[in-house]
């Protein structure tokens, strides 16, 4: 069975679907949202990240690297990704965990073992596993195998997706997914392309198809200042969702400013991740827009 690249496993996730969950973060995402909260999930391959606040400046990493892939600039360090071959020697030698490889090649079995650790908490709370990312459907074979194993073990499954993928990817997994957490950012395609780098056409199409297939869907809308924190944008989304079936709930996620600090640890100068101010004070208004259309709405995941 094929392995996958996972960049984090978070236990006691209480904002990714019902109950207590373990969230598996898949590495790799076809989109590049400028407000991305998990920029370490964007690149497909594993990468070495650097935590300046943890670094004791011993420079052992510089000495051990056989490829001269580590560049020191003042108190901070960069990884030259062209030179780095991910041998992990620098991470091993670093005693303060300032260097870390994000992205681990894991087998289905390894991931399932991690999931199974908290089954007692899932059972008690009606929780389960959530596959997130990155974009979990980006590694849909791996995801599919994991979902199969979860179903065999009677573990409730949630998939947190951007919906940006060929519909076949969704089709392969949909019968094994108990709940889709479907992210929707903005309906105006021009704005969507500007801020995420991709068109939202497949996202909207896939959501329509998925909703007619009978899967349970929670639509999650991040509220980003200057992108969608105004009534028009939100009404567009609400009107789009109105005719769709099986939308169980709308989650409004006010933007928090912590993606950038994570981005700073990556050595990915090409990536555009920026700070947005906290969204306008319109959360109550947004709630009303959805409530008027008789959606169940929740602020926060």
């Amino acid at each position: 069975m094929q392995n996958g690249i996972v960049f984090d496993i978070k236990r006691y996730a209480i904002h990714d679907g019902p109950g207590i969950r373990t969230t598996i973060f898949f590495k790799g995402c076809p989109m590049q949202c400028r407000w991305c909260q998990n920029p370490e999930g964007i690149a497909k391959e594993p990468e070495v990240i650097f935590w300046e606040n943890r670094c004791s400046q011993c420079d052992d990493c510089l000495n051990i690297c056989s490829y001269d892939a580590i560049i020191k600039k003042g108190n901070t360090k960069y990884i030259d990704k062209k030179k780095c071959n991910l041998c992990g020697e620098c991470v091993k030698v670093c005693s303060t965990e300032a260097l870390e490889i994000v992205g681990k090649d894991m087998s289905v079995e390894e991931v399932i073992n991690e999931i199974e650790r908290d089954v007692i908490f899932f059972d008690e709370s009606g929780g389960g596993v959530a596959f997130s990312g990155g974009e979990p459907l980006f590694q849909h074979d791996f995801l599919n195998n994991l979902l199969k194993q979860c179903k065999e073990r009677d573990v409730h499954t949630a998939v947190d997706t951007s919906g940006y993928c060929p519909y076949q990817a969704i089709e392969t997994v949909q019968d094994k997914v108990d709940l889709f957490l479907y992210d929707l950012k903005v309906i105006d395609n021009r704005v969507h392309i500007e801020y995420t780098g991709v068109s939202n056409e497949p996202i909207l199409e896939n959501l329509k198809k998925l909703s007619s297939n009978g899967n349970n869907i929670v639509v999650r809308i991040p509220i980003i200042h200057g992108v969608n924190d105004n009534v028009t944008h939100i009404e567009d989304i609400a009107d789009f969702l109105l005719p769709l079936k099986n939308i169980k709930e709308i989650n409004i996620l006010p933007y928090h400013n912590f993606g950038v600090s994570k981005y700073m640890r990556l050595s990915s100068p090409g990536m555009v991740i920026e700070n947005f101010p906290e969204p306008n004070d319109i959360i109550d208004e947004i709630k009303k827009i959805f409530e008027k259309r008789e959606f169940i709405i929740k602020v926060g995941g």
């Binding site: 006691y12 209480i14 109950g19 207590i20 007692i120 908490f121 059972d123 008690e124 709370s125 929780g127």
Partner: peptide, 17 residues
């Protein structure tokens, strides 16, 4: 209520153990 409920589940699980 949700935060409280999840904490309650956490405690119940620990007590099951």
């Amino acid at each position: 209520n949700e935060g409280l409920t999840k904490l309650a589940h956490l405690i119940r699980s620990y007590f099951k153990l």
